[in-house]
């Protein structure tokens, strides 16, 4: 009799332990937390974070931004080619990198705001100033998707390739690549 009463409680406690106190009700989460969704058919937000983290660490360690005559370096975010099967907003990658460069004090990025550019040109004309400083570097890159299959198992690898181009010399002064690989039969929640 006692066992009959305890059984639902034990089952509930066991279920709670197994699920790790996870809930399916809507709740706020942090990027890269334990409950992140891992998709096999698309780049997840934590994949962009991972690639940006790698690129920033590598770029700032290289010291290439410190080699300009008048620091901070001026960087223009150029084209990021999307060679994947999905439509993506490359700002998810490049914005993190440009913010990190700006916060480091090593570089500023050229504005893409039309109004700001208009005011700057007007200022130049009214004050008879010299033309604006041209960007020292441009940041360009490519995102490539590679898919391998074995039965029901699918392995997808996203390669984030980035290049920092010296505009005066016409050379690539820094290049970085981060591969993010995911394998499974279906999307999952968790690491």
């Amino acid at each position: 009799m006692k066992i009959k009463i305890l059984l639902p409680l034990i089952t509930a406690a066991g279920a709670a332990l197994l699920t790790g106190c996870a809930t399916t009700d809507a709740h706020y989460v942090q990027t890269g937390d334990r409950e992140q969704v891992i998709s096999l058919n698309q780049i997840n937000i934590q994949d962009y974070a991972n690639a940006a983290n790698n690129a920033v660490n590598d770029l700032l360690t290289s010291g290439v931004l410190d080699k300009v005559a008048n620091p901070p370096a001026v960087v223009e975010i150029s084209r990021i080619i999307n060679n994947t099967s999905q439509q993506i907003d490359t700002d998810l990658l490049t914005k993190k990198i440009s913010i990190a460069m700006l916060h480091s004090g090593k570089a500023v990025t050229k504005t893409v705001d039309a109004k700001a550019t208009g005011y700057q040109q007007e200022n130049e004309f009214l004050n008879d100033q010299k033309a604006t400083r041209l960007p020292d570097f441009t940041l360009s890159g490519k995102i490539i998707e590679t898919v391998d299959r074995a039965g029901n198992t699918r392995r997808v690898t996203y390669s984030f390739q980035l290049s920092l181009n010296d505009n005066k010399m016409g050379t690539q002064v820094w290049e970085g690549e981060k591969e993010v690989g995911k394998q499974g039969t279906r999307a999952a929640v968790g690491f």
């Binding site: 890269g32 934590q46 974070a49 991972n50 940006a52 990190a100």
Partner: peptide
């Protein structure tokens, strides 16, 4: 830090 997300 903009790149402070956890890395797996």
């Amino acid at each position: 830090n903009v790149i402070s997300a956890s890395i797996t």
